[in-house]
Design a protein around this nucleic acid. Structure first.
Length: 253
DNA sequence: AAGAACACCAACCGCAAGGGG
DNA sequence: GCCCCTTGCGGTTGGTGTTCT
């Protein structure tokens, strides 16, 4: 037996909300609150709507503190930074932006901001204070072995689908030729990779041979890959030249 | 001018988590 | 501990407006 539907779909209205419905819902919530039960609310308020629909309409549109209108550059940067760190945790990201909803942020990211970043038009991505690099933070679930959570400057925005893997066999200790070896996490070296493609025909540039060193001088080999057209500058991203050994070394923390 | 393609965003869907009985 | 109900979340869809050809 499957899950019981949250409401009787045959007897509820769907689709866009009318101004009358908005007014009814707004008046009811402002006068009576939600009563802690959205499922029962539409019946009490006299709305032929699903409780979930009412909740969504209130949270995303009717709440008095909702901010409508375009996102500012500062908001762009906050979204980008938080997305870099935690991925698509829209509710968490939205909680850092007063008046914005998770749906707003999600839509904005998917329709505009992602393109803006890929075009290199976001200040935190294109500025020179980090050598043109941004902090791409490894997603925890991507780690194949237990390593400290770390950030590594890479010339990519976090949404371009880079993969990340760590070899299971620790490498021999590298000679400490790198002046930053004593820092917590170091990307010691990297090299330009070769173009590869997956079974669906999507092109990637695969970079291999990077070394991570943690604060116990334990080393792990890693590899990562980026969509080929992005690395190749085809959609406004950096050219392959930007993705060099030197650039990554410059970003060592 | 008209149809096609694209962009935007509100709304829906299904799943997981949380809480109460 | 289990079950059921509700809420919250993130992914996806579909309608509408705009731009392009």
């Amino acid at each position: 037996m499957g899950r019981a539907p949250c409401c009787d779909k045959a007897n509820v209205k769907r689709g866009p909300w009318s101004p009358e419905e908005d007014a009814t819902l707004k008046n009811y919530v402002q006068n009576h609150g939600t009563g802690g039960n959205w499922i029962a609310l539409p019946l009490k308020a006299g709305l032929k709507r699903c409780g979930k629909s009412c909740r969504l309409r209130w949270l995303n549109y009717l709440r008095p503190d909702i901010k409508h209108g375009g996102f500012t550059e500062e908001e762009d940067n906050i979204i980008f930074t938080l997305y870099s760190q935690m991925g698509s945790r829209w509710s968490v990201i939205a909680s850092q932006l007063p008046g914005r909803t998770d749906n707003d942020v999600k839509n904005y990211w998917n329709t505009k901001l992602k393109k803006k970043i890929l075009a290199g038009k976001l200040s935190s991505f294109s500025s020179n204070n980090n050598g043109g690099l941004i902090n791409a933070v490894q997603k925890p679930e991507a780690a194949a072995v237990s390593l400290p959570y770390y950030s590594t400057p890479l010339p990519i925005p976090p949404d371009v689908g880079y993969g990340f893997s760590v070899s299971s066999t620790p490498l021999p200790i590298l000679s400490p030729s790198c002046p930053n070896l004593d820092n917590n996490i170091v990307v010691v070296s990297s090299q330009q990779g070769s173009a590869v493609s997956d079974s669906a025909g999507n092109g990637y540039v695969e970079d291999t041979g990077g070394i991570l060193v943690d604060d116990h001088h334990q080393q792990q080999q890693f590899s990562f890959e980026f969509p080929y057209e992005f690395i190749n500058g085809g959609i406004g991203g950096p050219s392959l030249v930007d993705f060099s050994h030197a650039d990554i070394e410059r970003g060592i923390v």
